[in-house]
Write a protein that binds this DNA or RNA. Structure first.
Lengths: 143, 143
DNA sequence: TACGAACCCGACCAAAACGCTCAGAAAGGT
DNA sequence: ACCTTTCTGAGCGTTTTGGTCGGGTTCGTA
């Protein structure tokens, strides 16, 4: 049930970019310093974020990376899906990468995993980068 | 965010045992047939379930495995923790296996992961084997 | 007391995922 | 020209996953 370091690092990077939005492009070295990730590794991740449309970049002197969208438009659930794959805990309940399982008829577990998938997605899909920046987190379950 | 096959198989086995509760001990071969898991692999898992107190066993002719507790006492969250480790998506928010992260001061992600941990735990800790057997699942998020 | 059913236990192994590093090539700025 | 910075892909060690296999122990039954 873990989230991988790639996902964590990607979100860290997005947070750094979100903080400096509308000011200037942030070079890789600076993002690396603030996120405590090696430049070579972080580079890969930023590339990935770029191809998925979350960041823009510019080369050469005074180049660097910047957020392409306003932070309120960056949905954490989507970022996680792009970098980690489906949120579903088992592929038999994945909406985006469904794979059948031989047990399916009347499998009680499938129903449970679906609930887990929905609750996690519910949290991550309602949180945006903007929410993280303003500390506006979804509330944990109450009852 | 996946759950491993060990956890899935363990729960399948517990379901089989739960269905035949109070009747007789179920031999490994029979559980394997119903769960579609190889006997050699399933054996390991049942052993683990035994050392954690979920199942009892008896050797020799007419031996086999059985549930040690009534299904309503078997909390899915606990089973998952035993077989998969902490439910927390990052170790920086694990209650049972906390490991610090150098970023901690004011890390917005830590707060998010904590919410995820709580929502998942909230589901799994309120579902018992008995609930699965009777189809009494926790409701998915509504709003 | 012998035999077979069934659990117990540990060693071992292949493949995949993870978490990177490194060596350049290409492009933009001055 | 030259420097800065992003781009790209190959490669690689470690850990986790998902098992298999072989032999030992215990129990019931005849």
């Amino acid at each position: 049930m873990k989230v991988s370091s790639r996902g964590e690092y990607a979100l860290r990077a997005l947070l750094v970019l979100g903080k400096n939005r509308d000011t200037r492009l942030i070079p890789l070295s600076e993002i690396a310093a603030q996120t405590l990730v090696s430049t070579s590794y972080l580079e890969q991740i930023l590339l990935q974020l770029k191809t998925h449309g979350y960041v823009k970049s510019k080369r050469g002197t005074h180049g660097g990376y910047g957020l392409r969208l306003p932070p309120e438009k960056v949905v954490i659930g989507e970022v996680v899906r792009q970098l980690e794959g489906p949120i579903a805990p088992m592929s038999c309940v994945s909406l985006t990468a469904y794979e059948p399982c031989p047990l399916e008829e009347g499998c009680q577990l499938q129903l449970l995993w679906a609930v887990v998938r929905d609750t996690v997605a519910h949290v991550l899909d309602r949180t945006t980068l903007g929410d993280l920046l303003t500390g506006n987190l979804p509330r944990p379950p109450t009852d």
